[in-house]
Design a protein around this nucleic acid. Sequence first.
DNA 1: ATCTGTGAAAAGATTCACAGCC
DNA 2: GGCTGTGAATCTTTTCACAGAT
Lengths: 236, 236
Amino acid sequence: MKGQRHNKPCHLRRPRGISPVTIRRLSLYLRHLEDLAEHGQTTVSSRQLGESLKLTAAQVRKDLAYFGQFGRPGVGYQIRELAEHLRSILGTDTVSNVAIVGVGSLGRALLRYRGWRKKGFQVVAAFDVAPSRVGKRSGNIVIQHISRLPATVRKGHIRMAILAVPAVVAQKVAELLCRCGIEGILNFAPLTLAVPEGVAVVAVDLAVQLEQLNYLVNTFQPGAEARWKTARAGQS
Amino acid sequence: MKGQRHNKPCHLRRPRGISPVTIRRLSLYLRHLEDLAEHGQTTVSSRQLGESLKLTAAQVRKDLAYFGQFGRPGVGYQIRELAEHLRSILGTDTVSNVAIVGVGSLGRALLRYRGWRKKGFQVVAAFDVAPSRVGKRSGNIVIQHISRLPATVRKGHIRMAILAVPAVVAQKVAELLCRCGIEGILNFAPLTLAVPEGVAVVAVDLAVQLEQLNYLVNTFQPGAEARWKTARAGQS
DNA sequence: ATCTGTGAAAAGATTCACAGCC
DNA sequence: GGCTGTGAATCTTTTCACAGAT
């Protein structure tokens, strides 16, 4: 360290070019901090954090240091404070509206999930085409026909959508979403979406994940030599 | 190339130390190849494959070359043949049994999902603790009480489990699974599991994924400068 | 001409190791 | 003692570029 003061209003840096991997780890740090906070802990060191998450302490410190100086030598990180910073970095310090498109069994599960709020997300609309689903309600959300999507998205300040429709229609629906001004898609359909510049896509293909696991199981049972560092590899 | 013959029974290499990222891409290659095959295409080049998946052609070739020589210069890859090789590498050329633990709305969705079979997985058992769920059937699977897990896992040649229980009990259940000899866990609970050496974990935290997306949306809308290469970053 | 496989170069990510703070 | 932040070193992954195959 080069004489920086640690008791100062450490303002949050927002550097360009942070890698996806780093951001993913920030989410994990936040998740674990929330856990620790609930258990009444107030302070945590990079080593502890690393141990729980199966990362090195240096990794943890470097990740956090990209965005500012949140720690105190000899002490560690204030849990509440660091969590606050991380939420601010990730943009989850304010609640974001989300739409779910496709209310099959997966869509329904995502719709019912009670954890979004605590994480800074609110599902404010759900769409489908099936007459058997349109009009039904889940919680306080009424499932609308997809034809109502453009109007609802535009009026509802919805910037992100969760896409849980069958693969065959996913690209079409994605295009509709993009035309309506959606800026981010969480894609559960098993294909790589083509979207215009400026629209972000994060894909979750459950079959792909299970294939990953299968590879690990088949490859590292024989020798059990964990050169792969399971933690790094697997635990998202 | 150094004079290798391309018309020979290119036997499959199985090198150690292939990175997780490479394996994930193999899954994506396979997924896309299956798609192409269904559309009647028989041959594909690394460039085409890369374009569809938003990767460079060199990346595709290098990934595949780790495992053998599957392509023909001037022609590309035989789709059927390459898909076969990939399945063999990923270990999905034979069907693997899987158990689902936790049959809440997410577990139910995973239980109902009709895509596992085609990908080489078969859900053969499901467990929960809630009396309201135990005994119910979904498809041809009867939900069993978790106390029956050890016996069922051991008798049923089940090496992998999908963990979809609430976070508070996830670690306990994971330990039970490990004691029963489970070798791989696909973890949907929002925490990092501690498991013994030799047990693989792949984690899917939906909130983390949405946080990733949120970061992308918030960070790259202003400048729209896609330095982050959305494809690499986002599309699993 | 088109395309693969691959060594070499470049880019990127992680770990080391230590100065300075508590 | 314990801990952070960070440059330097190391390790990993990606891209380049081209020889050789079809």
